[in-house]
Amino acid sequence: MSSDAPSAEPAIETRGLTKRFGHQAAVDHIDLAVPRGAVFGFLGPNGSGKTTTIRVMLGLAAATAGRVQVLGREMPRHLADVLPRVGALVEGPAFYPFLSGAANLHRLDSADRHASSTTRGARVEEALERVGLTHAAGKKVHAYSLGMKQRLGIANALLSPRELLVLDEPTNGLDPQGTREVRNLVRSLAAGGTTVFVSSHLLAEVEQMCTHAAVMSAGRLVAQGTLDELRQVGLAHVRVRTPDVAVARRVLVRMGLEPDEPVRDERAADEQAPDERPAADQRDVLVSAPMPDGAPEPEAIVEALVAGGVRVRGFGVEHPSLEERFVALTGEGFDVAR
């Protein structure tokens, strides 16, 4: 990394970052690279180490091993230089319940030695307006709803102009409208040149607002890149719907493909009353096979299938959705990691 081109440095870079609690590695050798100006989605199921990574990144907790650079400076050694340029919402908002929303922001802002006290009032007002809390500014926080606290937490991150925003689960507890507002806010901040690092377990959220993403699973980083890159990591599949399973598989193998285990197309079968169902050898089955680089063109496959006497009733080439990738990377089901 050349020091004369600081803007080319990643906003966040970790190398072999590890954090152990006792014997358990909550974060295990992760190498993150968040480019400047990106809206970076940090995905992973609950308990996969996202928040711990953020804590270590921001100097709240010490790494067991590995290095972290934020905005080109080593953390936590240059914490005092870096953190004033970072706005953060970490593991939910937290405020003094006995103070009003505005008083809370005043209090947190005055903890920053570099924040100017002359502009504080104006900055608090602006931040509250940005998240739509102006009308509730004077209300004590214990009377706030979860969504209002979340908005106040985001306002807190926006009190000063920031180069990097770290938002941990920013849409938690927000209604659909609030979620939309957060998305728009993130987009407008990114358009202004701010790098935004958003952690989330909601795939749709990441898919809608991010340019890049990384996926965590059980403390390990299992994928990262632009959204398109992530989608394409999984191989496209050719899918053939036909009753002639054995023949179709033979044809595919002859063409150098490796068909997956066949899946009966239950949907088609269920639509028909039991006594009208076709005999077993007449039922449609989905035969699919991954399409590696150098695989024959789809039209050539269809041609070969038809020529081989396969009754092709459906054919398609499908890229895996981000959701399929996510599930493939992190495992299925409700089990929290470990």
Partner: peptide, 12 residues
């Protein structure tokens, strides 16, 4: 309260 982390992130 959790405000400790936000004070430290300022950084205080």
């Amino acid at each position: 309260l959790g405000t400790l982390r936000y004070l430290l992130l300022r950084p205080a």
